[in-house]
Design a protein around this nucleic acid. Structure first.
Length: 258
DNA sequence: ATGGTAGAAACTCTA
């Protein structure tokens, strides 16, 4: 039985975080690493360094904001960008087939604040993502959706649910949109096994949030039913958030048998 | 308490 290790990490600038990404790849040897917030135009992607580390890069970037990538040991096939049928100039979705698994790296809009224009964009974007995924799941029964969803699914995924209730990243409409993905059959790999209490993936840079573990679990690895059955483990590597000059997100890693 | 910090870019926006 062969194992496949898939990971996701919002690096908040691949330019700044490249040394940490290379170190993390060497230490963890994932088969697939999805990145978000690369904040790099495609002609600035660190192709040489990633290739030298033994990974094939696929990327869809833009300057300053957003940007997604998929790094893989095996050659990525059928690489495509964006949500089918939705002309979004923001680079937030990248898909590739790797060793027979359809891997999709997503950077869901942050939403800024409930009721804002960016919040409406977030909900509209999620509706389009969900509609598109329904057909993707039919075409690719072995599908993994990894990334920064900017939504905490449940109260136990938020350090202080009362404080966050109704706020962006935890408002009812956002959680309903995430539940819509689960209704398509996608499973939250993190909840397929027992996990420590107060497990989070993102901590604000401000107010010493990480030291006080004031975090949210907003980065997820979702598996189609076929892959969920093969999931062996899922864990958060919070050690990377404790580093000097860290991303505000920690990597999430899941292992499946293929 | 509507603050605070980080990144990119360029005196502001996004998260």
């Amino acid at each position: 039985m062969e194992k496949m290790k898939l990971a996701t990490w919002n690096v908040n600038s691949l330019n700044i975080r490249l040394p940490q990404v290379l170190e993390w790849l060497a230490a963890n040897s994932p088969d697939v690493l999805c990145l978000q917030e690369t904040k790099l135009d495609d002609d600035k992607f660190p192709m040489v360094e990633i290739t030298a580390a033994g990974y094939h890069p696929a990327y869809a970037g833009q300057k300053t904001y957003n940007g997604v990538a998929i790094l893989s040991r095996a050659l990525p096939e059928q690489v495509s960008t964006g949500i089918g049928g939705y002309d979004d100039p923001q680079k937030r979705v990248l898909a590739a087939t790797i060793a027979g698994v359809r891997v999709i790296s997503v950077y869901v809009p942050n939403g800024e604040s409930v009721g804002s224009e960016k919040y409406r964009y977030k909900l509209d974007w999620l509706a389009r993502l969900t509609a598109w995924l329904k057909t993707e799941l039919v075409n690719h029964p072995q599908l993994a959706l990894l990334g920064d969803f900017n939504i905490a699914p449940e109260e136990r995924d938020v350090h202080d649910p009362r404080l966050w209730e109704g706020r962006v990243l935890f408002s009812a409409p956002e959680r309903a949109a995430l539940a819509g993905l689960f209704e398509c059959g996608l499973k939250d790999s993190f909840r397929l096994s027992d996990q420590p209490d107060k497990s989070f993936t993102w901590w604000d840079y401000r107010l010493n949030a990480f030291k006080r573990n004031m975090g949210l679990r907003i980065d997820h690895i979702l598996f189609s039913p076929d892959l969920a059955r093969k999931c062996q483990s899922c864990m958060i590597d919070r050690g990377m958030r404790a580093r000097e000059r860290p991303s505000d997100h920690a990597p999430v890693i899941a292992e499946i048998t293929i």
